[in-house]
């Protein structure tokens, strides 16, 4: 019996890549095109590429915002990838202020174009970067980072990052041009990656497999 994973289709993003990765990791993939598909899912993967506002618009158009909140409250695992994770936040600051799904308190902000050394920072942040953790390595052992070593590389492609109200929810960071960026966040059953596990080679495969084994 293989694990079921439901992929939220809201018209945005790299559905196929994530789909392929989930199958590669042994999951049976269902596509959620309706709010009810979300609510009844066993575990949910929420991808996304593009702008915050258009992401929220597409979700609203499909009546999915309430369903995602309800699923998150239900306690089954949900994984947001890149924009998907950003949409979990309360507010997004991309092209004006927009309300997010609001299941994790925080704001989505643009990566500062100048760092603390007064060097200009290349945006978007595109490329492989190491994930590290500054405080709580033990949080890696019972979540999606189980078996991953600090310093392993994953693939990022983004211009915005999540500024969490509760910094403890950030369980891994990457350092980009001397700026620390949240790479993995977790609030109970809600998991999020700023990077793309489906594009992160063997390390990404490990992360997705971990997610598929979460109860």
């Amino acid at each position: 019996m293989s694990t079921q994973a439901t992929l939220v289709d809201y018209g945005l993003g790299n559905m196929l890549s994530v789909h392929r990765m989930l199958e590669h990791c042994g999951a049976k993939v269902n596509i959620a095109a309706l709010p009810d598909d979300i609510i009844s899912a066993e575990r949910l993967v929420f991808p996304g590429v593009g702008a915050f506002a258009s992401g929220m618009q597409e979700l609203a158009k499909r009546g999915m915002i309430g369903a995602l909140r309800e699923f998150a409250r239900g306690g089954r695992p949900i994984l947001g990838i890149c924009l998907g994770m950003q949409l979990f936040m309360s507010i997004g600051e991309e092209f004006g202020e927009h309300v997010g799904i609001n299941i994790i308190p925080g704001r989505v902000k643009q990566i500062p174009s100048v760092n603390n050394l007064r060097n200009s920072v290349k945006i978007p942040h595109i490329g492989w970067n190491a994930i590290v953790n500054e405080q709580n390595k033990e949080s890696w052992d019972n979540g999606i980072l189980k078996g991953i070593q600090p310093g392993e590389f994953v693939y990022f492609a983004h211009s915005f990052y999540v500024d969490l109200r509760d910094k403890q929810l950030c369980i891994a960071q990457c350092v980009y041009e001397n700026t620390s960026i949240p790479a993995v966040v977790r609030l109970n059953n809600i998991h999020g990656c700023q990077f793309h596990p489906e594009k992160s080679g063997p390390v990404g495969i490990k992360i997705i497999k971990n997610f598929l084994t979460l109860a």
Partner: peptide, 15 residues
């Protein structure tokens, strides 16, 4: 377009 710095004090991983 940006201040020209030949020295990358903070390196990004090369791809």
């Amino acid at each position: 377009a940006i201040p020209f710095s030949t020295v990358r004090l903070v390196m990004r991983p090369f791809r």
